[in-house]
């Protein structure tokens, strides 16, 4: 995926983009301490879970704005993200 992104114009930080998509942009600067002691910023959450979360987020991004499933899907994904980026939750 990193290779895929190389060479493409970076308009917006990917993690920030998806956080914004989910209305969680205010969480972007919050640190996440992983169990191994590594601390990352929330905006980089895809470094940790992007392998699985990215397809869902891409799918959400591609979903029609008037899709009746959109809100439910956003809630589900928001719940996922919130659970993860809540301080201390990932420790």
């Amino acid at each position: 995926m990193a290779e895929q992104l190389e060479g493409q114009p970076v308009e917006e930080h990917e993690g920030e983009k998806y956080l914004r998509l989910l209305g969680l942009e205010n969480k972007a600067d919050e640190p996440i301490t992983l169990k191994d002691g590594t601390t990352i910023e929330t905006r980089n959450f895809l470094d940790v879970c992007g392998q699985y979360a990215r397809p869902m987020l891409v799918g959400l991004e591609a979903m029609e704005s008037d899709d009746p499933r959109r809100e439910d899907t956003m809630n589900a994904l928001r719940g996922m993200i919130s659970q993860y980026i809540e301080p201390g939750q990932a420790e």
């Binding site: 895929q4 699985y52 891409v58 799918g59």
Partner: peptide, 11 residues
């Protein structure tokens, strides 16, 4: 799953 599949397809 559908969402992930859609996202994967798009990717």
């Amino acid at each position: 799953l559908d969402l992930a599949a859609t996202g994967s397809a798009k990717m």
